[in-house]
Amino acid sequence: MKRLIFLYVRDKAITDDLTQEVFIKVFSHMNTFEHNSSYKTWIYRIAINQCKDYFRSWTYRKIIFNPFIEKTNDNTPEQILIREDEKSLLTQAILSLPIKYREIIILFYYNELKMKEISNILQVNESTVKTRISRARNLLKKKLGGVYLE
């Protein structure tokens, strides 16, 4: 869950806040779950909506973030892993994709969800999911200079 949110917002502090907000929403709305899909799909949908809400928020649009300021020097295993992922060529290429292609790649390859689950989470047709995966792969091929890592 945290990885999914981080790949949307690209900031550790905001990722922590949004992850906490997602779990608070899940807990407070557990009784409204209609069992039309799995819990996993429902929680991913909440997380993605929370990220999109953040992008529409005043905070995101008005506060300028300076990425050159080092926040903390924490060396937890999770932070080390995130730093290593950020440095990899593939991760940078994925993060540079438009959001609709980035979320498809994240859900399909990182979270290993099936096409049907992704279509439920994003509330689009399965054929749209397949098309976006294909287009995202082509964009990644171009960005990686023909070296396609799957």
Rank of each mutant, 00 (worst) to 15 (best):
L89N: 05
Y54E: 02
L139T: 01
S38R: 05
S37W: 07
K40C: 11
F23C: 09
P67G: 10
N125M: 06
K87I: 05
I133P: 00
Q50I: 14
K87Q: 13
F23E: 13
R61M: 09
K100L: 00
I48D: 14
R102C: 05
F33S: 11
T41Q: 14
L81W: 05
N138M: 06
I63S: 04
W42S: 10
D74Y: 03
T59Y: 08
E70Y: 08
I118W: 07
V22W: 14
R132I: 02
M115K: 14
L122I: 07
N75I: 05
E150Q: 12
V129A: 05
I82E: 10
Y44E: 13
N120R: 08
D16N: 12
P67Q: 12
N125V: 01
L90I: 10
I104Y: 02
M1N: 11
Y101K: 09
F68G: 04
I99E: 09
A93D: 03
N75S: 08
E126L: 08
V129H: 04
T41K: 02
G146S: 01
Y39H: 13
I133N: 09
K71A: 09
Y54L: 03
E34D: 15
I64S: 04
K40E: 12
P77Y: 04
T91D: 06
V124R: 15
R102V: 09
F27C: 11
I104V: 15
A13M: 04
E21Q: 15
K130N: 10
Y60A: 13
T131Q: 12
K25H: 14
D11Y: 03
T32H: 15
R3D: 08
K87F: 01
Y148H: 04
V124Y: 07
N138P: 00
G146K: 02
K130H: 02
R102Q: 11
Y148R: 10
I118L: 08
S28Y: 14
Q50L: 13
I5W: 06
W42C: 08
L18A: 06
Q50N: 11
T91H: 07
I121R: 12
I46V: 14
N49P: 02
R61E: 10
R132E: 01
T59S: 11
K100V: 00
N111Y: 11
S88I: 02
L140H: 03
L140P: 01
A136C: 00
Y39I: 15
K130R: 12
Y109W: 09
S127P: 00
K62F: 08
Y8P: 00
T19A: 11
K25N: 15
F6T: 03
V124S: 07
T76D: 05
L4S: 02
D16I: 12
V147H: 05
R45C: 00
T32N: 12
E21M: 15
I104S: 04
S88F: 01
N120V: 02
K40A: 10
H35M: 13
D16K: 13
Y148M: 11
S57Y: 04
D17I: 14
L90P: 00
I69Q: 12
K142T: 07
M30F: 12
F65L: 08
N125L: 03
S57Q: 07
Q79V: 03
I94T: 01
T72R: 10
R102H: 03
E117Y: 10
E21V: 09
E126V: 06
E21W: 10
D85E: 15
N66L: 01
